[in-house]
Design a protein around this nucleic acid. Structure first.
Lengths: 194, 194
DNA sequence: CGCGACGTTGATTTGCCTCAACGATTGTGG
DNA sequence: CCACAATCGTTGAGGCAAATCAACGTCGCG
């Protein structure tokens, strides 16, 4: 059923009874995106958060020169939103786009705030998710600060072995923060070009 | 009074009545650190979180070559912990050290978990703090990915004008992810060496 | 006073970027 | 279903940002 994956995922962090989960999940609605379709554009106000059921998205920033810098890729069980825009009520600086035909469960900002009020467990859920996210981002910062591109590339392959197949090298390069030409050279050196 | 700063700080996110705040704050105990004193060492289990009343700390990672990479500096109103170790029960990979004589309010992991259970507001408090932290870290990642060292240095000066005076250039360089020699050259170029 | 941490400067090297050209692959409209 | 365009990936030449190494002056502290 549609909500199974969501149930499974949040069960890692909190326990909800069946009626509780029903109250929680009924606020999510299914939304489909075609490949290359835009989920969120820079400048608009982000008033949603979405749980990815299948497919793949890129969440990225467009720098002054118009180059995409990928903050992360979201596949099955990831969440997508522009957190800054969502919580601070500012125009989003991020863009989100589907890389393939995808399905997500969307909850509106309003409904999420409603849940925070009515279900303390949900506050806990997102508290934990934000903690995990903080830890992951801290690791990524340390990685960006002291590792050369080839090491970060290997790290990426280890960490997201399945993701690699869905992505072009340009997209991976954009996540690693290097040019795609240089990534190509790295692949040649380490002979990871099949 | 000792808890005033803490009260002021959490009031930005949640409202607590006087008795509620009392219940909250009584779980924090004052702890003093001398300059150069260690708060947390890599390898130990982090079972606390601390709110900085005054002074200054560096939170850093020691890479394979023994070079310090500073994740952040914590001054008045910042919190210090190794979140990964704290929440995932793993040995910490971070080190925390006082850069001057400092005072903090420490809460144990156990007491914090107790608060989560007994006071839903505290769950909200840390949910919000973790959100803000996620946003800040995302920004830092984008900055590391596309800005050159001199821009990041200027960014740092703007963002933390007061911090600059407490820190040596080596420490700032360690935060920016560059060598201190190079920071010195940047300062010369931009003639920010007074 | 003297030692160790700090900051500066220069020479050299390295990691990565930019630009450009080209082959391979994918996708799309006729 | 083919043809052609667009996107993707590879490769090379040249250049810049930043690291490394080394030498040296300065300062604060014990």
């Amino acid at each position: 059923m549609m909500y199974d994956l969501l149930y499974k995922n949040i069960s890692r962090y909190i326990q909800l009874s069946d009626p509780e989960f029903k109250n929680f999940s009924r606020l999510f609605r299914l939304q489909k995106f075609k490949k290359k379709e835009t989920v969120l554009s820079e400048g608009s106000y982000c008033h949603f958060e979405a749980f990815v059921l299948n497919g793949c998205f890129k969440v990225y920033f467009l720098n002054e020169e118009g180059v995409e810098q990928t903050l992360y890729f979201a596949v099955e069980s990831w969440w997508i939103t522009d957190l800054d825009s969502l919580i601070n009520n500012v125009p989003s600086t991020l863009n989100i786009e589907a890389l393939e035909d995808s399905e997500v469960l969307v909850i509106s900002k309003k409904d999420k705030e409603f849940l925070y009020e009515k279900m303390p467990q949900i506050e806990k859920l997102f508290r934990i998710m934000n903690q995990q996210s903080t830890v992951a981002l801290q690791r990524r910062i340390l990685s960006l600060m002291n590792k050369t591109a080839d090491k970060r590339y290997l790290e990426f392959l280890e960490k997201y072995p399945t993701l690699e197949q869905k992505l072009t090298q340009q997209q991976i390069a954009s996540y690693l923060g290097i040019s795609h030409e240089f990534l190509s050279k790295i692949r040649k050196k380490t002979s990871l070009g099949r």
